[in-house]
Design a protein around this nucleic acid. Structure first.
Lengths: 217, 217
DNA sequence: TATTTTATACATGTATACAAAATACACCAC
DNA sequence: GTGGTGTATTTTGTATACATGTATAAAATA
């Protein structure tokens, strides 16, 4: 029972989309495996119509492939795919960084610095999961500061595709330390509102990400 | 009756998606207007299921908004939306240009130069429609030369969203002349495989596009 | 025994029917 | 005349039934 007062009128479609998306990101539905329609609709307790519509949405997002008459599968990324996604994401976040320096308010930047400091706390305590979650938020929030809706949308989509891979990849301690260093540089540039430097730092961060994840795909 | 021999086994879904997408791009379905499910499925001769699945795909592409229980509408872009899309597209094509210079074969570049020359022919003859179509192809092909699948996918999507706007915008003769000049610069840089210069030229081209279309949104 | 064919089961694609929500409209009170 | 309430109608959301296509396994032939 939902104790909150808020009216939760999310359509069944939206609920199924985010539920299945999570199942894919969490790896419950394995990349390359068939999606058993009958079993999933049974487990989710919905009928085929909203489920299939959800699959179409996820297919458009690139997480699922619908093969006519042959069922749907969870999309599986090749190393080339991942490299391509990071190449694009790197340039988009570079743009985001440049725009953020030009368009964000002082308060917004302060918030982001605060978020970064909390991340540092989790790093020192070696709490991977909360660090990881704040990391996702850091990148999303920084992209928001670009005040460019399309940029946010595209970044969100790529981040969703990469979420699982990144989580798997960032396991080794020295990789984690490297990522934290990258973030230090980014936050410093953001504080100075040095768009070019922030852009460079973000692009470098994404390139480093490739080095960190490439062996675990 | 289909006189061609080719087996046209595209799913009903795909057919509906591209049909409705075209209706939106051509302006038959006007931005902001409600999509009359009953009428359209009747005109297309399909049932509601594949049609609604197609709407979900188009919604994910950003061309349509599905409002729960209130029907779907054709998405209408504000000037801010268009500016944001061009800002992103500009940077993506800049990246595409840089990568193309590094990764394309001589033959591929020659093909693109040839395509450009055909565009010039249409420009001299003032044949707007064939010029416009080759222009779309020019940008798609150049992005293909980046050999980055994600980049192509993202570019395709943004190009689809902007298609109608760009067509409306590029009407005045002096604007057209400016666009042709931009292309001359791009092709020259591509011939020299000067990635930085090509990138700059593409980014500038997109910025000019904004100036050309902003008054007609 | 290997290979091809065919039958059958099962999963997917599409259509339709039913339920729920939103909108339009008429009627009444103020 | 204006505002509000209740009902009818339309439209959308979901479930289910039916049709069609694909894969598997059994049987027949080479």
């Amino acid at each position: 029972m939902n104790s909150s007062i808020a009216i939760t009128n999310r359509s069944l479609h939206d609920q199924v989309v985010s539920r299945v998306r999570d199942l894919i990101i969490e790896g419950v539905l394995e990349p390359g495996s068939r999606i058993d329609e009958a079993r999933l609709i049974d487990e989710l307790g919905v009928s085929r119509t909203p489920f299939r519509e959800a699959l179409r949405t996820l297919a458009a997002e690139g997480l699922v492939i619908v093969r006519p008459s042959k069922g749907s599968i969870v999309r599986k990324w090749t190393p080339e795919d991942v490299f391509a996604m990071l190449e694009v994401l790197g340039h988009l976040e570079q743009l985001a960084g440049e725009l953020a320096c030009a368009r964000a308010s002082d308060a917004e930047i302060a918030e982001l610095v605060d978020l970064h400091n909390r991340m540092l706390g989790h790093y020192r305590a070696r709490d991977r999961m909360p660090y990881y979650k704040l990391n996702q938020e850091f990148h999303s929030r920084l992209t928001e500061l670009s005040k460019n809706e399309t940029l946010q949308e595209t970044q969100r989509n790529l981040q969703a595709r990469l979420k699982r891979i990144r989580y798997i990849g960032n396991q080794r301690p020295e990789y984690w330390a490297g990522a934290v260093e990258d973030h230090e540089a980014m936050v410093a540039a953001l504080k100075d509102r040095d768009g070019a430097r922030l852009g460079q730092a973000m692009a470098r961060h994404i390139r480093n990400t490739w080095d960190r994840v490439k062996d675990s795909i």
